[in-house]
Design a protein around this nucleic acid. Sequence first.
DNA 1: GCGTTACCGAATACAGCGTTCGATACGATT
DNA 2: AATCGTATCGAACGCTGTATTCGGTAACGC
Lengths: 178, 178
Amino acid sequence: MDCRQRKSRQAIFRAFAELLKKENYSKITVQQIIDLADVGRTIFYTHFETKDALLESFCAEIFEHVFSEGLDKEKTHDFSGEHDMKARVTHILYHLREHIDYLPGILSGDSDEIFMGCFKERLSGLFAKSFRESEPVSYDYVLNHMMNDFAETIRWWAGHSRYSPEEISAFSLRLHRD
Amino acid sequence: MDCRQRKSRQAIFRAFAELLKKENYSKITVQQIIDLADVGRTIFYTHFETKDALLESFCAEIFEHVFSEGLDKEKTHDFSGEHDMKARVTHILYHLREHIDYLPGILSGDSDEIFMGCFKERLSGLFAKSFRESEPVSYDYVLNHMMNDFAETIRWWAGHSRYSPEEISAFSLRLHRD
DNA sequence: GCGTTACCGAATACAGCGTTCGATACGATT
DNA sequence: AATCGTATCGAACGCTGTATTCGGTAACGC
């Protein structure tokens, strides 16, 4: 592939991430993105069909990283052999922390639906395992609820980043009858 | 006050509520509202400074109803004498059910910030009482979390209205270590 | 070197918000 | 009933932002 394409795409991603640190997705204009990325308008729209499509690609890239397998032996954390909920959640939090700066910009407003769509897809499998059939509460309700808990926890974490992934994980799980 | 004013205002409210049943706040245009309400554009903007201002007034009106005191002796529910959490939450749910049709339209997208602003103001006092100081979790975190739980529960309820306020109340509280 | 392809940037169409203005219809006061 | 004030209408406008188009330019691959 032409390296010009890759460079443009990366420039757009970088500019987008940079802008997300300062303001919400819905407030960011395409003009701001292409100005900061220093690319033409045409290029933006050849790479991404719409502004929302950019966000989707952006989210997909984040989650590909966050949920990637075979990373259990990274230096920052090693949970090989552990398979309980807390370990899994903490694992995800470690990865998410790398993106914490621009998550609030995505998680507020209309855009959280796009993010959550990606997120729920990947989380449902994880949470489904820990669900007790005997609970007198609708499965649908609990699953949806756990998703939202998680998203809300991330949003909150972004404003209180002094907490470690382990602490956040404990906070989040503590709120549920496990 | 001129009865024409009141009529216009009500027509706008009614049209707005009607549109909210079918689509999200952010998708609704001022044009749609004034067409359905059958009022001129000028009138919309003399009554409400912006589209967001309409939503704020709309929310305020809902909550004035939901949180109104002295309604404990209504036919639908009577919790006089009871002051525990479940009773309070159920009470609120009974009132919210009257507005359930258009709540999802408000609770999705950017607009939920306006709704939640109103809601949190009134809920914080309620929830603060049931908070245990000894919990090893930040107060800020828990309060924010409970708000969000509640909002998310309402959103979910709107799509599953076969459940009674009592059931929803039980669902919601069951998720917390009380 | 030459064709292909990515790229630029200005102009354009379009949609939605909010404003302005002159004309009209209704309500209250006398 | 006549009149004054005001709520109302609707069309036009400016503004911002999204997405498209097009002619010209520069870089890449062979």
